[in-house]
Design a protein around this nucleic acid. Structure first.
Lengths: 193, 193
DNA sequence: AGCTTCATGTAAATTGTTACATGATTAG
DNA sequence: CTAATCATGTAACAATTTACATGAAGCT
């Protein structure tokens, strides 16, 4: 649990830089806004929060209010934390390592299980269409806001990325299905000649 | 190291289903063909290969030839291994968990470091253009082959996915830069009124 | 002479997920 | 009354990366 190269700390600092947060509110924020490109579990969040305090990058506001009978611990970013965040922000982001299980199946299955792959592609299209609709809904909601500030811009740009991504993945799957159909017809012809 | 839910075993089995492999050739295959959507390290490959043999899913061909003075261990998939692969192929692939660090930076940086974000986007565009060119080169190479078999189809479909993905990411970054420029102008105007 | 590729592997460290424990409140 | 949400946290497990160790061959 040395946490010296991981990104968890930065997403916590980033969210805290907007407003003080509890572990729970951080989890919810990530689920609501970052779901399509980032995820963190409580098992990462709570220990990292503790670590940030140890390193002077965050402070727990003493007001550990017992709200509605619930204990909440609010974390606030320190100046040192803001500096750390700014430094990270200026560094070139890592090249993203993607893991598309469906592409493994496409790669290994086109030789033997063409029909199965076709079904997986159908499900993939459905999933991406759904995600796309969500992104478009969110973008419409943002456009309805009168606030034109910078926080809106961040949300808009990340949602826009989701829109481009899901569109591309859906379009790819449609194109892939077409190629598979061609291949099937080719095989059929070969059989009949 | 129980390896019961991980995907490593399946990529090894998948590659072995095409032809017998050494740990090293598996690593190279992944780097060459799957680089843009999957990665495995030697630290995963060698122990998993051992496990596959223990579970009767693969066999080491006794011909541990000392080729050019080098020791190589060739692994061949067994019938049990093929069955296991087929079962996995028929299961719905996991929803992919993406981690785009650049989107975190966009989200946290648009409020304070607009210029930095703009630079990151430039690098991102360059990176995606390069990857796109590679994918298109590979697709052209595949099209040049006279073989129209199923193994070709798998390579074509995965490369096509890369093409769609990199195009989308590049297009998004261009659109994002435009939105950032608009925001800057807006801020400038506000200052001058 | 020195770097890269081929080729195997292990150990430690890190990173991340899942399951569990606890308990109040709120909505159906 | 029951399920979900709010809220904290830990422990175990799983997955993955990185660094190291070894050594020959081939290219510059």
């Amino acid at each position: 649990m040395k946490k010296d190269t991981g990104k968890t700390r930065y997403i916590l600092l980033g969210l805290m830089s907007k407003r003080p947060q509890t572990g729970y509110s951080i989890k919810k924020s990530i689920e609501n806004e970052f779901r399509h490109f980032w995820q963190e579990s409580f098992g990462q969040i709570y220990p990292t929060l503790k670590l940030l305090v140890e390193q002077g990058l965050a402070e727990t506001t003493e007001t550990e209010i017992v709200q509605n009978g619930r204990q909440t611990i609010t974390y606030t970013i320190t100046e040192k934390g803001r500096a750390k965040l700014k430094r990270w922000l200026s560094e070139a982001p890592d090249v993203e390592k993607l893991r598309y299980e469906i592409l493994l199946k496409v790669s290994f299955g086109t030789a033997t299980d063409l029909d199965t792959i076709d079904q997986h592609l159908d499900a993939f299209i459905g999933r991406n269409e759904k995600a796309l609709a969500e992104m478009e809904g969110f973008l419409a909601f943002l456009n309805g806001l009168e606030d034109q500030g910078c926080e809106r811009l961040g949300s808009e740009l990340t949602a826009l990325c989701g829109k481009y991504l899901y569109t591309a993945m859906k379009d790819w799957a449609v194109a892939a299905k077409k190629k598979i159909l061609d291949q099937k017809e080719l095989e059929h012809e070969t059989k009949n000649t």
